[in-house]
Design a protein around this nucleic acid. Structure first.
Lengths: 133, 133
DNA sequence: TATTGTTATACTCTATAACTATA
DNA sequence: TATAGTTATAGAGTATAACAATA
């Protein structure tokens, strides 16, 4: 694979990520906050699990959750099993916002893929699944 | 396209971006600094052109270039045509670092795509080109 | 002793607003 | 007047180190 071909893959990823960033910004959120809400959509993880998932230090997640909590999108809950552990969950407002974001992101990504032929759209999904692993 | 299929595309983009972020961090750079060096690889843009390319405010680019300049990777040059204009170029150290980054990123992206069959690798490049436009 | 999470600190990144210099 | 770039300011995001509470 030539270096220009790597460029193309990287540029395409930036294009998708720019779409996500704009979707988040439209709701006055950062990309990281968007990812946090995405993680909480179907989970109630511990602080450590969030850090692992986002590849961040735990202290960074403390601040991240602080700001999301201050805005009313998430809530901390003490674990019943282990008094050291804190779990994080969406509030009703957070869930509503998450659903709006999902719709916005979906529209943005679909717009990006609208230029592809049906066979290519099928293929890009297969490839994306392979990359995700 | 179902929402789970959008998820797959988004997750694949995050995977590529995480590879880039790790490549940059390995050289003690942020993703934005990596993008800046990438832009300068084959151009000598004005501050305004960098801002347009990265989708940032010009004041953000001033700080970005300040920090890169302080580390010896880029240099500002006054335009001969228009005294208001400043162009930015790589230093020798910046070019060397950029080449190292290119190699690191290339290896990382290739590792991601190693699971694909040859026909798929060809296809992903075509699709990536379409998305990039 | 080891682990979970927070706090203190420092830096990068980013935008808005106000400014200077030039066109 | 309009444009290019900077500076001042404020806030978000991030890591490191030190810490408290719990296991």
């Amino acid at each position: 694979m030539s270096s220009s071909e790597v460029d193309v893959v990287v540029q395409a990823s930036f294009t998708v990520l720019d779409t996500l960033t704009r979707s988040a910004a439209g709701h006055d959120l950062s990309l990281t906050q968007l990812r946090l809400l995405g993680i909480l959509r179907d989970r109630t993880p511990t602080m450590a699990a969030i850090a692992d998932h986002l590849g961040l230090d735990r202290s960074s997640v403390s601040g991240l959750v602080d700001r999301a909590e201050r805005r009313g999108y998430v809530a901390r809950r003490a674990s019943a099993d282990d008094a050291r552990v804190t779990t994080v969950e969406l509030t009703e407002a957070g869930r509503t916002l998450g659903q709006e974001l999902t719709a916005t992101v979906e529209a943005g990504v679909e717009a990006l893929l609208d230029c592809l032929r049906p066979a290519d759209r099928k293929r890009v999904l297969e490839i994306a699944r392979s990359v995700t692993g």
